[in-house]
Amino acid sequence: MSLTIRSLNGDTSFLLIFTPPVAPLSSPGLFPGSFTILVDPWIVGPSIILNSVFSISEQKSQPCISNLNELELEPDLILISQHKPDHCHEETLRQLPKDCESTILATPAAVKKVQSWNHFRPEFIHALPKYVEGDCRSIYRIVLPPPTPRGTCGEVTVSWLPAKRDVTALHHAIGITYRPPCTVLSMLNPGHYLDLPMSPPASPGSPMTIASSPRTIVPSPYNDREKTLSVIYSPHGVSYETIRPYATSHLVSESALPLTALLHSFDCVENPWWLGGNISTGSPGGFEIARNLYARAWISAHDADKDNRGWAVKQTRIGQFAVDEVKRMLDEGQDGKRRKPTRTEVVSLAPGQEHRIEVG
């Protein structure tokens, strides 16, 4: 089982490809049986807030595709994390045909924006509810059918974790989990599939613990039923305190920790308070999330060099962090004291580059 993260524009547009350990032989494409999520696509034209005098951004690096129709397969899910045009980009999204059957899942403000275009079929547009610990209705779920009649369904979940009292509506996270349909080829009879039993409980004292939490990460070494891939996408950053209830409840119950991938900015971006204050928390903000959730990989998001112009960006300050600086921060801590090195891979992807994470 694996997660492949492909950067489309070197910034916040990603294609997430979740691939099961066993796929039907009839599955088409380069990733048989995969589930794909297209995140915040922006590949053509500028991003304009209000008007070009106030704020306009243009990409300096050429995206790896010029049209969404160049993707190998129509994505199963299109995820739009906010209504700002560099995340919810009309010109790019209108490249998809009106009869597109991809599910569009977006924050409430972004849903209103997409619906106003009258381009997509309304029944395929859904708003993300705000995550509430203990409320299963606050998690968007997609059932994945098994490849064989005797198999067990898999599941994709998406959760929206907004920060409290965030007037900019920038600071939130999207949590994603992927559990594949539960079937494997029998080693005794390769021509048949077998249902797998539930894993036995972990032995006392063996689970890894989440920092400052009485809950535990329950390992499942015996089968694939409870092995779940997990992603936190937070391009502008959010505090770990916002993510903690989701991590200690949903991610633990899904056996989705350690976190498979954190998509979070490296660079810190600040505006004057009267222009929103903090725009991106960068590495100092992502550090706590990556360390507490034992992230396998930290992928740079929203750090591309762009041509930003307009009144709103004249006083913007950017503190840049290179890959080796972020890795050193994870290994030594923000106070500079040497700690046990993490196993987190720190990655920055150019347009068209991929990072693959194998789990299992």
Results as ranks from 00 to 15, higher is better:
164 K>Y: 11
164 K>D: 15
165 R>V: 12
165 R>G: 05
165 R>Q: 14
165 R>P: 01
165 R>L: 12
166 D>G: 13
167 V>N: 09
167 V>Y: 07
168 T>K: 05
168 T>E: 05
168 T>L: 06
169 A>N: 14
170 L>K: 15
171 H>V: 09
172 H>M: 09
172 H>L: 08
172 H>P: 01
172 H>D: 01
174 I>T: 15
174 I>N: 10
175 G>K: 03
176 I>R: 03
176 I>S: 04
176 I>K: 03
176 I>A: 04
177 T>W: 04
177 T>A: 04
177 T>D: 02
178 Y>S: 02
178 Y>E: 02
178 Y>Q: 03
178 Y>K: 02
179 R>Q: 12
180 P>N: 04
180 P>T: 07
180 P>G: 02
181 P>Q: 06
181 P>N: 02
181 P>M: 02
182 C>R: 10
182 C>W: 05
183 T>E: 11
183 T>P: 00
183 T>Q: 08
183 T>F: 08
185 L>F: 04
185 L>R: 14
186 S>L: 01
186 S>W: 00
186 S>H: 01
186 S>G: 11
187 M>I: 10
187 M>F: 05
187 M>K: 14
187 M>A: 14
188 L>D: 10
188 L>K: 11
188 L>I: 01
188 L>M: 11
188 L>G: 01
188 L>Q: 10
190 P>F: 02
190 P>K: 04
190 P>G: 06
191 G>E: 06
191 G>R: 09
191 G>C: 10
192 H>D: 01
192 H>L: 03
193 Y>E: 11
193 Y>F: 15
193 Y>T: 14
194 L>H: 07
194 L>F: 05
194 L>N: 03
195 D>Q: 13
196 L>H: 01
197 P>R: 00
197 P>T: 00
198 M>V: 00
198 M>H: 13
199 S>Y: 00
199 S>G: 14
199 S>F: 00
200 P>F: 01
200 P>W: 02
200 P>L: 07
200 P>N: 04
200 P>A: 05
201 P>L: 06
202 A>D: 13
202 A>N: 12
203 S>M: 10
203 S>R: 10
203 S>E: 12
204 P>K: 09
204 P>V: 08
204 P>S: 09
205 G>F: 05
205 G>K: 05
206 S>G: 00
206 S>T: 15
207 P>W: 05
210 I>Q: 08
210 I>D: 09
210 I>N: 09
210 I>F: 10
211 A>Q: 12
213 S>D: 07
213 S>P: 08
214 P>L: 10
214 P>V: 11
214 P>G: 07
214 P>N: 11
216 T>G: 01
216 T>W: 02
217 I>P: 08
217 I>K: 09
217 I>E: 08
218 V>A: 11
218 V>K: 09
219 P>F: 03
219 P>C: 03
